[in-house]
Nucleic acid binder design. Structure first.
Lengths: 104, 104
DNA sequence: CCCTAGGGATAGGGTTAC
DNA sequence: TGTAACCCTATCCCTAGG
């Protein structure tokens, strides 16, 4: 595909913060159109601003996520094969439900 | 730890290749949902498909053959990389048109 | 018709097991 | 050590509601 995934720069993020401080959160189109920030946000759509703000909110204290590199005891993602059931299954694994990131 | 780490079978890999050929790379969820491939990929998530495709591409040497993957930490012990300064001073990316969620 | 809010999915980085 | 499989996060896409 042609999506190099444009990461947000510090300048863009600052412009977004300033824009929110000036116009208020939710006024994405207004912020994007503001000549004061359009210099830095011309490459972002109002939707992008919204998404970035959402991400910033989560990263700001919302989630007390411990970024420590201490995986300690990672809980088993799937059912723990505590029982090495030797049932007849050569190629077909058990009903190993995937992580189900998103499945409707 | 006891991570099952299900290795990909040839059938799954073939299904993935066929799925990509049919739906295109990037449409992982679509491939996984396809009744034609769900038979073999029901135990894999869309994320798994993406990851497997990435590993497949690397193994095929599609990407960069060079394994110098920009070490996060410093690698140059004493030698100075003769990397000429790129003219890329401004962080102005190419005119990447935003998805234009504004004016249609 | 335009814009915002939210959910869903993808791309890439980083970590762990073998 | 190197590779495969896995997990996490940022960004992008789609749809519903105002």
């Amino acid at each position: 595909m042609g999506n190099p995934k444009q990461k947000w720069t510090s300048e863009e993020e600052e412009a977004l913060r300033a824009g929110v401080a000036k116009h208020g959160a939710g006024k994405w189109k207004n912020i994007q159109r503001d000549p004061e920030f359009n210099h830095l946000l011309f490459a972002r759509s109002n939707i992008d601003l919204k998404d970035k703000w959402r991400n910033l909110s989560v990263a700001s204290g919302q989630g007390a996520r411990d970024k420590s590199k201490t995986p300690k005891a990672k809980i088993n993602p799937a059912d723990t094969p505590a029982t090495p059931l030797l049932t007849a299954q050569t190629s077909t694994p058990l009903f190993h439900h995937p992580k189900m990131h998103q499945q409707m």
